[in-house]
Design a protein around this nucleic acid. Structure first.
Lengths: 206, 206
DNA sequence: ACCTGAACACCGTTCAAGT
DNA sequence: ACCTGAACACCGTTCAAGT
């Protein structure tokens, strides 16, 4: 590992460098503007070098989407451990975590959720994650219903989809720049969205 | 207007032809894959010709977004005229119209709502439309509250945002390909989403 | 095993020149 | 007034050749 050579022929850890640089570039210019050539330029390798580690542009974006999803999951799990144990509170906490993540990492959220710039079906990591989120949400709704905290009139899968849609919609309205028209200033976005989610959950208390 | 010349030097109505062809191309390949060169090729004009009518790629996409929004509005207005007059029913109808449009024109919906491929701030048409949607939604919520059909515990603007988020989230989950994981088959999507919206509205009946 | 750098087929955009 | 077609600066991707 010679340290006097600024650019050795072999980068050493190009794969990770490409992922990190691409993530930074996405945050700077938008997920749809990540160019492999620009990434290579920033790292100081030739334009063809990244193709040794990623089959194509899509494969790189898939790797980024996986990285972002793992980070979201860590945050959700951490918050769940701190949540009151009642299922309805776990649901609320899950929604708050999701909103907080989307507001903190709008580019990652947009990339992962829109599923346009990467190949969702090629990633077992992503499939497992989204499956788990759905399972957990439905299970918590069922549990909250049997604990007497949520209305039983609506089937659990439908109530879960309703809550998910609302949270997802709030997060997307933010990243899509639509909150301003709805009278929500950027600074108060997190507070207002979490309060709106709370009002939704309270509306379905039994 | 000579009809024996297959390609006259002047197209005649190139601006509209570019919009129509670009819309078709978007439906075929996705809104982010609309190439001005491909549009020009399909119409049979040179690669520089569209620039006589659109300042750049963004300007063309803005025109498309406006066109799509006008069509959405026509559909919403038509359905409103057929709706029962009670504010809560008008709200429900509005949501159903929105969902139906998003399911029928996923590419247009994605383009308009994501606001990434065009310049929202450059379009008074779009600003007016979105402003009107919000005003109308909040007014209908207030009216439904005073007609005794919706809970008064939640402020009208917040309740309006909640309903909008849920509807928007459902529509986006569809175009983002996330409904399958939530146990909703494409064929039953419209029915299931409308039923979920109905359950939400019913949950907030007083 | 990994990287270079030229090559190819695409883009968006500009602009002198043509009709 | 509108369109052509060459030009420029970008892409993604491939691949023989280098280390």
């Amino acid at each position: 590992m010679p340290r006097d050579t600024p650019r050795p022929y072999h980068h050493g850890n190009l794969r990770q460098a490409v992922i990190d640089t691409a993530l930074a570039l996405a945050e700077e210019t938008g997920d749809e503007r990540v160019s492999l050539r620009e990434v290579a330029r920033r790292i100081g390798v030739s334009s063809g070098a990244p193709f040794r580690h990623f089959a194509d542009h899509t494969a790189l974006m898939t790797a980024i989407a996986e990285e972002a999803t793992v980070r979201l999951r860590l945050m959700v799990d951490r918050d769940q451990h701190r949540s009151p144990p009642a299922a309805i509170e776990r649901l609320r906490t899950m929604g708050h975590s999701f909103l907080a993540w989307a507001l903190q990492h709008p580019t990652s959220f947009r990339l992962v959720s829109a599923r346009r710039l990467y190949d969702f079906d090629a990633s077992p990591v992503l499939a497992a994650h989204f499956h788990a989120v759905r399972e957990r949400t439905v299970a918590l709704v069922q549990q909250a219903q049997s604990e007497g905290d949520l209305q039983r009139g609506v089937p659990a899968p439908r109530l879960a989809l309703m809550l998910r849609s609302a949270v997802y919609g709030m997060a997307r309205m933010h990243v899509d720049g639509q909150l301003a028209q709805w009278g929500v200033a950027p600074r108060s976005a997190r507070r207002e969205l979490q309060a709106t989610l709370d009002a939704l959950i309270d509306g379905f208390r039994r």
